[in-house]
Design a protein around this nucleic acid. Sequence first.
DNA 1: CAACACTACGCAATCGTTTTCGTCGGCCAA
DNA 2: TTGGCCGACGAAAACGATTGCGTAGTGTTG
Lengths: 343, 343
Amino acid sequence: MRRGPRPTLKAIAKQLGVSVTTVSRALNGKAEIYGISKKTEEAVLRAAKKLRFSPDPVARGLRLNQTLSIGLLIPDIANPYFAEIAKNVEMAARRAAYSVILCDSQESTDLEVESLALLRGRKVDGLVIAPVGQSARHLEELQDGGLPVVVIDRHFPRLKLPYVVSDNYKGALDATNHLIERGHRTIACVQGLARTSPNRDRVRGYQASLKKHGIAADASLVVGSGFGEENGYVHAKLLLTKKRGITAILALSNLIALGILRALSEDGLKVPGDISIICFDDQPYCAYLNTPMTTVDQDNEQMGQIAVRLLLEQIQSPGKPGGEGIMLPTRLIERASVKRLTR
Amino acid sequence: MRRGPRPTLKAIAKQLGVSVTTVSRALNGKAEIYGISKKTEEAVLRAAKKLRFSPDPVARGLRLNQTLSIGLLIPDIANPYFAEIAKNVEMAARRAAYSVILCDSQESTDLEVESLALLRGRKVDGLVIAPVGQSARHLEELQDGGLPVVVIDRHFPRLKLPYVVSDNYKGALDATNHLIERGHRTIACVQGLARTSPNRDRVRGYQASLKKHGIAADASLVVGSGFGEENGYVHAKLLLTKKRGITAILALSNLIALGILRALSEDGLKVPGDISIICFDDQPYCAYLNTPMTTVDQDNEQMGQIAVRLLLEQIQSPGKPGGEGIMLPTRLIERASVKRLTR
DNA sequence: CAACACTACGCAATCGTTTTCGTCGGCCAA
DNA sequence: TTGGCCGACGAAAACGATTGCGTAGTGTTG
């Protein structure tokens, strides 16, 4: 269909015997402002339609210093949680005529820094970042407002950048309450990366619930050091051998839960018969595990959409003091992995 | 750090008292060709380093008609299978200094067409497409070689575009052989979208295995009409009520398998005690299901990397008759969802 | 009839690079 | 002395779109 090179303003201008200026103005709806006759305007519009003209975004970008694209920086796009966020970011951006340039930092701060430079170099109009979360040094220089940025999933309290995160505190609080209300008293918590904000908030929520119910916090029940599966496996194993009387485990990520399941299965323990489990981050398969898993669902759909909305607001009205930050509610999805204890 | 506007060629030129031309040539390593003295060259290089100069890709793109970006068009980036492919495409592209513009067609051919236009409009240097697969009309016009393209996952035999797909035929053949060798004779197949190439090839593989072992093909054992979970659930239900003697099911996608598990669980049937299952598309959680699932693993890591390699080859040497297509081997991962029958 | 306003446009600069032609001075050979 | 050649660079034209100033022509008014 589309034969040869794409049409340019010049082509249309020559065909109609008018100047490039006039064509540009007519196509940009500025005919009235610049006093272009209806006749000419319509002729231009018709010609443009016939030739399927669309302005070259590269040339446009050079002149206007605006690319109609945003950068999306994700620590691991293969993680279904982030993949879903990416999907919603893409959809929301597309609706606003923006394209998404995807960068995967592979959970490496170095690659995150490199990607940031790359995206700036490409002159994206804005940035949605799910930071690795171990360091914020390189993010600080984004604060000056040169480039609109929204941070998602993990945030840094000291950073003055708008963010969208889950209410991790409340999520963990609810989950722990749920366990305690069903008679559990000795509840372990297998955590992820200790120095990240979601992890800190979740542990705080867990501890707050215990305190509220008058249960003494046992520091040795909070273990783990990563959001991956191996971490869940190892620490479940250790917990099972070293601690007595654990009736429930709160897993601070999905993969951690899978690791715990593996450990339990090896030891012949049943869920929820022997041990109850709640984990963060609902996934499509959670309902189809042999024991459907009770989970703390994060609204990553909203997270992606809101992030883009905040970003576009910044882009459209620069200089405004970018929002403070938004916390999305979590939702406890009850399935079958928690047993009601009767003593 | 980076204060004010980024440095330009002109800035460097003025500072050194040379022309923009000279700066450009020195920076592009063409000093010798154009006879620029070592002295000048080094001065330019030093100044560029000091100012942290990097050429504006937008301006460069306008002049060179090349954007150093590729488009990645995926039917559903939230699907972990595609997310993993996307990750590998991004990594491979980055290694070659290309950026990835992500488009999600949401399994809609209309959106696929729209995205294609958008990516062409953005003048990407190449395209990696996992087509929705229902229609190829809009892909035909990509054949003329104007824009380098590689098709992945699903392909169209009549389309003269290089592709990278799994050996779906062999994967299904192996899986069915595996079942038959363990004594199964009445094997159902719950398929996905019937008109897509992976589905066709898998069904052919399934049928070939039956034939090889002298088992009459029963057309009513091949059911289903989509790769989603609901399809698996519904057709498993129907199979269980209408057909007798089924001892194994081959699920042509991961989500289908989840649906089947749900149906079986509702009917109180155990895997593999009552029914054996093998499904396509290994996922991280497959090993952690209560009955770890035997799967046909596709090498989506390779798929992404090879796709990018093929694409870059086309980009770097245009006019060459883009490769024929590549089939990646699948791998049967044995876990515990298949029972050995003894009669 | 000169001054002015208004209509309907066009010229040319601009964005930052790359690249096609030069140019200019010096040196050497004829 | 002059022609040729080489070393070392520069001017300017692209690439395609946008935009700050014009400005030619027509009509109106004092």
